[in-house]
Nucleic acid binder design. Structure first.
Lengths: 149, 149
DNA sequence: TTTATATATTTGTCACACTAACTATTGGTA
DNA sequence: TACCAATAGTTAGTGTGACAAATATATAAA
């Protein structure tokens, strides 16, 4: 394999990741989901963890703090999330879903699973496992010291 | 395989694509390359095609037209690319690298191949082929009618 | 020739990624 | 007590991505 070919993966990876996000976003839009793909990821993680600080949530979804601040801002504006001051630590917030947020997650979850499946037509469960293995290996190769997940 | 597991790929794909871009961008920065990862992709494609219109280039790099307009703006400001009015069609430009742009590509190309290889530690040539196959299949599954590449 | 349609590019808006710098607060230590 | 490093979160600046709409020009149809 030549050097030249080795560089191709980054192009295909970026192109496919963008397509996956774009496809999902279009489906979200045509279904009037009222959230973006990234906002959904945050809502989903909040629904699976009763209370989280922004730092804990940032580590779960692998987004940086400024990005998460803005996503939380938007989700608060939409009424799906609330920032509650931490009782002991005045620097931090406890994030939790509102009632509206909980029912939003409940109603969207099955629809989103359906959207996500579309990408796997013509691919096998074995492909799925190999794909996850390779993605995780690449991630760890580039992630310096911390070999999380 | 449950529905839940099937949704995981989109998270891993997005996370890994961001890591790949972030890692490359850090290396670009510490090497004072003076371009971003996306700007490099554009320069590279221009270097492999003598003259291109913005539309032709956009199709090559799979970026939409507004995004490409802005990247070209930046590359022109940096002196790597020139927009030359098309002799017959006054709507379009012929893009080409300047002398500075050509030498920039020549000097960066080997360094960037080196950076790109890092992701493939602990992975085999077979993994590489499987990875490309799966990425392309996903892309085509979500790409509606046009099954390019 | 006039009209309609298609093409090439730009502009504007919103969302996200990354960096750096900043505020406020906490907790340890001298 | 006073200091100082670490932590939680925000703000600002730049680049990119998606989408819609606008502008200018070209080309085909009536």
């Amino acid at each position: 394999m030549t050097q030249e070919q080795y560089s191709k993966y980054s192009f295909l990876l970026d192109r496919t990741a963008r397509k996956v996000k774009q496809y999902a976003q279009q489906q979200f839009k045509s279904g009037d989901f009222d959230v973006t793909v990234d906002q959904w990821l945050v809502l989903k993680n909040l629904s699976e963890n009763d209370v989280l600080s922004q730092t804990e949530l940032a580590n779960l979804v692998f987004k940086d703090h400024p990005t998460l601040t803005r996503i939380i801002d938007l989700l608060c504006k939409k009424g799906y999330v609330e920032r509650v001051p931490h009782p002991q630590d005045r620097r931090s917030f406890q994030l939790h879903l509102t009632e509206t947020g909980i029912s939003k997650v409940t109603s969207l979850r099955p629809e989103i699973h359906h959207i996500r499946e579309k990408a796997w037509e013509k691919l096998s469960p074995h492909d799925f496992e190999e794909f996850k293995r390779i993605l995780n290996t690449i991630y760890q190769n580039l992630n310096g010291e911390s070999l999380d997940q």
